[in-house]
Amino acid sequence: MPLNILFAASEDRWQAYEAPLREALSDIGQGDANLALDIPAAEVDYIVYAPSSEVQDFMPYTRTKAVLNLWAGVEGVVGNDTLTQPLARMVDDGLTQGMVDWVVGHTMRHHLNTDLHVMNQDGKWRRYVPPLAPDRPVTILGLGALGRACGEALAGLGFPVTGWSRSQKDVEGLRCLSGDEGLVQALSDAQIVILLLPQTPDTENLLNAARLDLLPEGAVIINPGRGPLIDDDALLSALDSGHIGHATLDVFREEPLPAEHPYWAHPKVTVTPHIASETRPKSASRVIAENIRRGEAGEPFVHLVDRSLGY
C-alpha cells in the first residue's frame, strides 16, 4: 500500500517542494507515495512539517511514524504536548553551505571594514589597514552542525576561532570551551562574535548586558541564529555607548522586524531579512526522503530532536 505523506506547510512551500520531493521519493523506491496537502489524519504515515502550519494538534495522527521538520529550528513545535511522534529537524548540506557563505561574508565585511568605503563615497581618502586574520579572534556561540561548519571555514582562512557550547565539544582547529566559565573566556577576547545557538529557555538573552560588557571595546556581533539569544535593550545600550562597534542581525524576536523598531535606524546596526540560510528544496527533499527510507526499513531516524534539550 502506498505511503501517505502529508505536506503540512504553506501553499508557496508546496509549489517549491512538490517536484523535488516526488523526485527524492522516487529515488528511494517510493515513487507511488501519496504526497498531498490534505490527507485524513488517521491515514498519515509521515508529516513533512513547517511549524507555521495549521497542524498544531498531533493527537489524531495515530499512524504517523515521524514528523520531519522543513527547518533547522524547532522551537515553534518542540514544546507541543500533543506531539508524541519522533521529530526530526532539518540538517541539510545546502542549508549549511548557505550559512557558511553568509557568515564568512559578513565576518570578512567587518574584518576588512568594507562599510567604511562602501558607505562613504564622498571624495575623502580614508585609509584603513585591517589586522591580518590571525590577529582577529572570532568566537562562535554554538557548535552544532552550522556552528562547526562556520568555525572550520573561518579557521581555514586563518582566524583564531573559539567555539563555545553548553556541553564540551571537540572540533579540530578550534579552541572549544563550554559551561559558564568557558563562556566568559570565549567572550573576553572576541573581536567578532557569531551566534549560532538554538532557541531554548537556557539560551534566551544569553548575550545580556553583563556578557556584552565582557567583550573588548569595539567588538562586532553577528547573529544569524535566533533573535531571542540577544537582549535587545542591552545591545542597543552597548551600541550607543560605543562599547559594541556594530551588530549585523538576521533574526529577531518579531519577524518581519517592525518598521518602528530602533534597529532599522541605528547607524551601527545592519538588518538582513532572515536570509542567512534558507532551506533549499532539492537538497532538503533528499534529507526528508532518507528519513522516510529509514523509517520504512526499520532503521533509526537521523537528526532526531532531544525534547529535554529543546533541539
Rank of each mutant, 00 (worst) to 15 (best):
residue 26 S to M: 10
residue 28 I to P: 02
residue 30 Q to T: 01
residue 32 D to H: 13
residue 33 A to Y: 06
residue 33 A to C: 05
residue 34 N to S: 05
residue 34 N to A: 07
residue 35 L to Y: 09
residue 37 L to P: 00
residue 37 L to Y: 03
residue 38 D to K: 13
residue 38 D to M: 04
residue 39 I to Q: 05
residue 39 I to Y: 00
residue 41 A to V: 08
residue 42 A to V: 15
residue 43 E to A: 13
residue 43 E to S: 13
residue 43 E to M: 10
residue 44 V to G: 10
residue 44 V to F: 01
residue 46 Y to V: 01
residue 47 I to E: 03
residue 49 Y to M: 05
residue 49 Y to A: 04
residue 50 A to L: 12
residue 51 P to R: 14
residue 52 S to N: 12
residue 53 S to P: 01
residue 55 V to I: 15
residue 55 V to E: 02
residue 56 Q to W: 03
residue 56 Q to D: 12
residue 57 D to I: 10
residue 57 D to M: 07
residue 58 F to Y: 14
residue 58 F to Q: 06
residue 58 F to T: 02
residue 60 P to T: 07
residue 64 T to A: 13
residue 64 T to Q: 11
residue 65 K to M: 05
residue 66 A to T: 07
residue 66 A to P: 07
residue 67 V to K: 03
residue 70 L to S: 01
residue 71 W to A: 13
residue 71 W to V: 08
residue 72 A to H: 14
residue 72 A to K: 09
residue 75 E to G: 09
residue 76 G to H: 13
residue 78 V to S: 09
residue 79 G to F: 08
residue 83 L to A: 09
residue 83 L to T: 08
residue 84 T to F: 07
residue 86 P to A: 02
residue 87 L to M: 09
residue 87 L to R: 10
residue 91 V to H: 07
residue 91 V to P: 07
residue 91 V to I: 14
residue 91 V to C: 09
residue 92 D to S: 11
residue 94 G to C: 01
residue 98 G to T: 06
residue 98 G to V: 03
residue 98 G to I: 02
residue 99 M to T: 12
residue 100 V to I: 14
residue 100 V to L: 01
residue 101 D to E: 14
residue 102 W to S: 07
residue 103 V to E: 04
residue 103 V to Y: 04
residue 104 V to H: 06
residue 104 V to E: 04
residue 105 G to F: 11
residue 105 G to V: 13
residue 106 H to A: 04
residue 109 R to I: 12
residue 111 H to K: 03
residue 111 H to R: 08
residue 111 H to S: 08
residue 114 T to Q: 15
